[in-house]
Nucleic acid binder design. Sequence first.
RNA 1: GGAAGGGUGGCAGAGCGGGCGAUUGCGGCGGUCUUGAAAACCGCUGGGGGUAUAGCGCCCUCCGUGGGUUCGAAUCCCACCCCUUCCGCCA
Length: 422
Amino acid sequence: MLDLGFIRANPQLIREAAHQKGVVLDLERLLALDGERRGLLVQIEGMRAERNRRSQEIPGLKGGGRAQSIRDLRELGAELDSLEPALERVESELEGLLLQVPSPPHPDVPPGFDESANLLVRRWGELPAYDFAPADHLTLGERLGIIDVTRGVRLSGSRQYVLRGDGMLLERAVMNFALDRLLRKGFIPLSVPMLIRPEAMRGTGYFPGGEEQCYAIPRDDLFLIGTAEVPVTAYHAGEILDAADLPLRYAGFSGCFRREAGAAGRDTAGIYRVHQFYKVEQVVITRADPEASEREHELITANAEELLQALELPYRVVVVCAGEMGLGQVKKYDVETWMPSRNAYSETHSASMFYDFQARRLRLRYREAGGEVIHCHTLNNTAAASPRILIPLLEVHQEADGSVRIPVALRPYLDGRASIGP
RNA sequence: GGAAGGGUGGCAGAGCGGGCGAUUGCGGCGGUCUUGAAAACCGCUGGGGGUAUAGCGCCCUCCGUGGGUUCGAAUCCCACCCCUUCCGCCA
C-alpha cells in the first residue's frame, strides 16, 4: 500500500508503475473516490461537531427548549444515519483499490515482462565438468534411497515426497547450517506459526491476489503460510517500534505450503516444485530510509551468496525485471543456483525490497528520536529452502561411483562425514 | 469442549450514561538545583483522519472487534475474538 497523498501527488508515476508491472488499476476511479471521501468527511464531520456541541448543552437546558433540542438532534442524527453509509461505501471501495496500487520499481530495475529481461549482476563458481554421465537428483536420490517420490505421492498426492535416511539428515543439516550462519551475524531466530490469519496475508501483500496459491482452513479462517516471511514480517504488526532498535534482523524457520495452482505440468520432475518444504528466511525491518533499505538488501543477498559459496555451489545473481516483480516489491534479486539436470541456473533464493509497502498494510511503525511516527521499511530473502537446495547439492557434488561429496562447511552438521553413498 | 473472571494510554491501574482521550502511579522527555550524578521539585508526554497551512489552530474519530439503545456511550444491551483461572481432553 502506498500513501494516498503520494498517489494523489504522483498519479503519472503510479500509472507507469502499473504498466511496467502489468497490473490493471483504475487510478481515475481511485482519485475520484479520494475526492468524494474528503467531501463527505467535511460534511459529516461538520454535522457531528454540531451534534456534539448541542448535546453538551442539553444538561443545562430546561423544559421546552430542552425538548426542542432533543427533537432537533434526533433529526440531525437521522440525517447522519442516511449519509454515513455513503461514506462507508466510498471508503471500502477506496481501500480495495488502494490494495491494488503497485510500488514503483527502483531505477535499477530493468523493464520487461518475463525472465529473459532480467539483468545479470554477477556469477560465482565454476560449472561442474564430469568425466562420467551425471545423474539427475531424482535418480541419485532413489539410487541412494534418500528421496522417495513414489510413496510421497501415494501418501499425499502430486508434488509430494519423502526424504529418508541421509536425505532427511541432509535437509536438517542444511537448515541448521543456514540458521547458524545467520545467528553469527546477529539475526534473531524465530520459530513461527505456519497457520496464519488473513490479515497477515493481506499485510504482507499476498492477499488480495494470491489466494489461489494458498492452502486455506476455512472452518477456522486460517491459512497455511507459503513462507515464514508472512508471520515474521507481521510479527510486529500494529506496533510502534523504537528507532534505536532498528534494524531488526530475523531468521525465521518454518514449513512452507504452496498449492502451485496454475503450474500444472511445470517442473514436475523430481523435487524442484513441491507443495511443502522447509525454509530458513531472512526478514529485516529497518528505518524508512531508501539508503538503509538498499544497504540491507545488499546484505541479505550477500548472506545468501555466502551460504552458497560455503556449500561450493555455482550461482548467479539477477535483478528481476519489473513485470516479474510482485505488486509491492521495489527491487528484487533472484539468486539462481546451477542445476546440472536442468542445464540452467534456477531460483533458489529471492531477495525482495519493499520500502514501506508492507509496513503500511501491517501498520508497522517506529518512533523517530524527534517523536515522529513513521512506517518502517521491510525486506526479506531466503537463507535456505529445502528440498530445492538439495538438487544442486546432490547433482553438483556427485561422484563417478554414485556417492555424493559433502562440502567441508556442511560436514559438522552430518557427523563429520565427507560423503554419502552406497 | 464446560464454568467463572477479565480485555482502558509504553507499563500498572481508576473510571461504569454528559467537559473523560480519560484521575493517579511508574517509565520517558525537558527544566530548576548540583563540579557531575542521584534525590527533590516544576512542566510536558497516545494513534488515525479532515480542514487550514508561513506557523498557530479548529474539528472528527479511536477505551478488544462488530452491531444496537440514547440528544449524548469507555460506561447500558447483543454477538464475536482474545487472555487468565478451574474442570475435561491431549502431543
